[in-house]
Design a protein around this nucleic acid. Structure first.
Lengths: 107, 107
DNA sequence: TTTATATATGATAAAATTTTCATATATTTA
DNA sequence: TAAATATATGAAAATTTTATCATATATAAA
């Protein structure tokens, strides 16, 4: 059985899923709005929303044929703290040399 | 150019690297001690420590032929907050259905 | 100054994740 | 009830990440 931390990072520390959480930080949105704003392919967005929902990082309510998603407060706080940490360490992250600046291949 | 958040999660949200940060939470340790305690293969541990060091999440000092690693306070706080969040959501993470309970293949 | 211990480096192999693709369902409007 | 819109599902392909392997360096002790 995997440990809970691994599961947590799988859900939270994923590029698209974290972008969704950041977008929902300021206002609730339906899938279509998220899709436009974040430019995530429809089926991927749907997979990601399901994951965030199952983990209870976000909530959803129906409105006609739209589904409106919102982030919960605890998760919002964590998003904020991560964002602060990222800002503080960005300079070093960029110079790390082990983390890849570009997706595969050299810098 | 990748965004800073992606680089941050690459460094921080990695199984072995996060375990190292958690281990260093309570006391500073040299590579050999970490290796025993966490049971991480030597070369992997070395790669991971270099990454954490380059990102400035940990510091190092020399003592004879050992190198003693310690976590910085800001990162320690973030580790604690993540740990709390994981505890709170573990129940849902396990039931997510999208996150894999076992490494590849079915549950 | 040779041997032993502690740790580091870089390339490739192995494994895991993310995207794509084909298609399904659910609700509304015509 | 047929067409249109909004969103969801599952499997396979594509890409990325992590582990392994071979080897290097640095310090200490014999």
């Amino acid at each position: 059985m995997r440990n809970a931390t691994d599961l947590f990072f799988d859900a939270f520390a994923n590029q698209n899923r974290f972008r969704i959480l950041v977008a929902l930080r300021d206002k609730e949105m339906c899938a279509g709005e998220l899709q436009k704003e974040l430019n995530i392919e429809q089926t991927n967005l749907s997979h990601d929303l399901r994951c965030l929902l199952n983990c209870r990082f976000v909530n959803v309510r129906k409105d006609g044929r739209k589904r409106i998603y919102s982030i919960n407060d605890e998760t919002k706080d964590l998003v904020d703290e991560v964002t602060r940490h990222v800002k503080r360490y960005e300079k070093y992250l960029r110079k790390c040399g082990i983390l890849k600046e570009e997706k595969n291949g050299r810098i």
